[in-house]
Simulated scan of single mutants.
Amino acid sequence: MRTCWFVGLTTLDVVHRAAGRPGRDEKVTASRQDVAAGGPAANAAVTAAALGARAVLVTALGSSPVAQAARADLEACGVEVHDVVAPGEDFPLAVSAVLVDDATGERSVVSADAALAEAPPPTFLRDLPAPDVVLFDGHHPVIAGAAVGHLENRDPRPQVLLDAGRWRPLFAELLPVADVAAVSARFTVPGHDDVVSGTHALGARGVVVTHGGGPVEWSTGGEAGTVAVPPVDARDTLGAGDAFHGALAVELADGATLPVACAAANEVASTRVAHVGPRAWLTEVRAETRAEAPR
C-alpha cells in the first residue's frame, strides 16, 4: 500500500446550503447543514484514504470539543491522525463558516485557518510510516519546517507535493523542495508575471495549474501541456481543489507521470463537485477503487 503524508491545516467546517447569499444585514434560511473536518491537508488526506492509500495527517488539533469532532470525522474516513499538540492540551482549532449556493454550487468561506495560534513542532515524525509522497498545504510553518528537515534525512527522499492555492510567505521556503507545485489560476508569485515560470523560478521541478472547470496545465522537465476536465454538473465545489490534490498525491505515489496523474485527479475532483455535501461523494470513489483493485 502506498503511503502519503499530509502536513498542514485541519479545521471544523460548518456548511450551510442556501438558495442564495445573504445581503448586508440580512439572514437566509439554509436548506441543508453539514459539519465535517476541513482544511486543505485534511481534505486531501480524506480523498487519499478513499482511494485506498495509507493517509497520514500531521496537523494541530488539541483536545477541545471542536477538535474532537474534527478528529472523529477524519478517523471515520480512514485517516491516520497525528496531532502535534500534546494530549490534554487545548489549541484554538479554527471553525470555518461555509455557504454553498444551491443554484451554482459555488462556495464562500470565512475561516481563521491557522492564524489563531502557532502550532508546536512535531516530535513523532521518526515513528511514522515511510511516505512515498508528502503534501504540504502552506499552513502551520513550524510543522512544515520540521517535516522538511526530517525528509532531508530520508533515503530515498519521498516526492514533495505542494498545495498552493494562494501565495503564503512559507511557499518561498517550500517551493525549492517541491517536486510538484499544484497552484490555482489565482496564485501569484512575487516578482513574476507568469505563474508557471515564476513557480519554476523559485525551485519547483513540476508545476500544475488548475482553472476550475477549465483544462489543467502541467509543466515538468522542459515539457508542458494541458489535461481536459470531464464535464460535470457542478452541485458543490467545496473541497474540490483538495480532492484534486489528494488524488494527485496518490497517483504520484503510484509512479504516474504528471499528465497521467493530473487526468486521474481531474476525474476525482469532478466526482466531488457532482455531489452535495462534504462526504457523500466518497461512497462513489470508494466503490470505483474497489472495482479497480486487482483480484
Rank of each mutant, 00 (worst) to 15 (best):
D102C: 07
D102A: 15
D102G: 15
D102Q: 15
T104E: 11
G105T: 11
G105L: 08
G105S: 13
G105D: 13
E106C: 06
E106L: 09
R107T: 12
S108F: 14
V109Q: 06
V109E: 09
V110R: 10
S111R: 09
S111N: 12
A112W: 13
A114W: 04
A114R: 01
A114V: 02
A115E: 13
A115I: 05
A115F: 11
A117M: 10
A117L: 09
A117V: 08
A117K: 10
E118P: 01
P120D: 11
P121Q: 10
P121I: 01
P122H: 03
P122Y: 02
T123V: 06
T123Q: 11
F124R: 13
F124A: 12
F124Y: 15
L125Q: 08
L125N: 08
L125G: 09
D127H: 10
D127T: 14
D127I: 01
L128Q: 06
L128S: 02
P129V: 00
A130M: 02
A130C: 03
A130K: 09
P131M: 00
P131W: 02
P131D: 07
P131L: 01
P131T: 06
D132V: 00
D132A: 03
D132E: 14
D132H: 08
V133Y: 06
V133P: 10
V134I: 01
V134Y: 00
V134K: 00
L135R: 05
F136R: 04
F136P: 05
F136G: 05
F136W: 06
D137M: 03
D137E: 11
G138I: 04
H139I: 07
H139S: 11
H139K: 09
H139D: 10
H140M: 03
H140Y: 08
P141G: 01
P141Y: 01
V142T: 15
I143P: 09
I143S: 07
A144W: 04
A144T: 07
A144V: 04
A144E: 14
G145I: 00
A146N: 08
A147I: 06
A147D: 08
